[in-house]
Design a protein around this nucleic acid. Structure first.
Lengths: 154, 154
DNA sequence: TAGCTGACCATACCGATCTGAAGTCAGTCA
DNA sequence: TGACTGACTTCAGATCGGTATGGTCAGCTA
């Protein structure tokens, strides 16, 4: 049940993949619990600081720090807004980079639902056709693939 | 660009989702850099302790501890083996739970390749038909979905 | 029997992550 | 003018993740 390797990956011997491995890069950028919980709430519609605080259960300090780093990494942007009779504030909006992390975040949920009985179940469906949704690896011919049908080239 | 919410999620107000949120559960179980790097190497074919050490660049202590926790969580199993003239040892094999995390791990790589220019590029292809592979959210009718086309029910 | 090797464990330590509580600051409202 | 609010920032402390170093232990080989 393992992938096939090609290119430089195929004959690297036992050299470690360095800091530039894209999986490692992503974990450094967004691989904390707080980052993932904030992304979850962004997908669920939160945009404002205290919504993020209330709905993740993180502290204000953690929320402020992590939102800042998510803006630096480029998955969120700060957008100014002003309600009548209020001063100017900022909302945090998902960027294209942020929405591109959706399969990862919901992939985690899918995994827990299948393999972690203690986890609460959530289901994903297509709001148009109502059909159930899965996070999958798929080739452009539409085949759903398991690990051992993949070739990884670097 | 946000999902639609249904069920208990729709009218939770600003209550935090607890520890049982499946995204949270997954992050607690496998949400460390060391866990993800070890899974990466498992997908790439590593099974033995020192292969994991050499190919992730993690220390022996970190590797030993994290392999243990991955076995406890159920994504790896210890399988005894014995080479001629050697004593009995253990290999670490992916379980069904472990291979089910593949879309998450390669989803991270896909994200870095699209949005983190400093990351090394890897490409995934179907070893049968050779076509490129993507990690996507797809409904059973075959539609590829963005966040705002999803309904999340809890 | 002694030595070697692979697979760990123990210890000490550093830095990042997170918490809880308190403080700051801009701007609006009474 | 003073109180209030939303959005932070600061600080002290706990916990976790990771490194470096140095054991330990089983069992095979000489």
């Amino acid at each position: 049940m393992t992938a096939h390797l090609a290119g430089r990956l195929a004959d690297r011997g036992s050299e470690p993949l360095g800091d530039r491995c894209p999986i490692n890069v992503a974990m450094q950028a967004v691989g904390t619990r707080s980052a993932v919980l904030l992304l979850r709430e962004a997908y669920y519609g939160a945009t404002r600081f205290d919504d993020f605080v209330d709905r993740t259960g993180l502290t204000e300090a953690t929320t402020a720090g992590r939102l800042k780093s998510l803006v630096e990494v480029g998955v969120l942007t700060k957008v100014p807004y002003q309600e009548p009779g209020q001063r100017r504030r900022f909302e945090y909006h998902l960027t294209a980079s942020g929405t591109d992390l959706m399969p990862v975040v919901f992939g985690l949920a899918q995994w827990s639902n299948r393999h972690q009985p203690a986890a609460q179940t959530i289901t994903l469906s297509h709001d148009d056709c109502g059909k159930p949704v899965e996070i999958v690896a798929e080739c452009t011919d539409g085949h759903h693939l398991a690990v051992d049908q993949l070739t990884v080239t670097a």
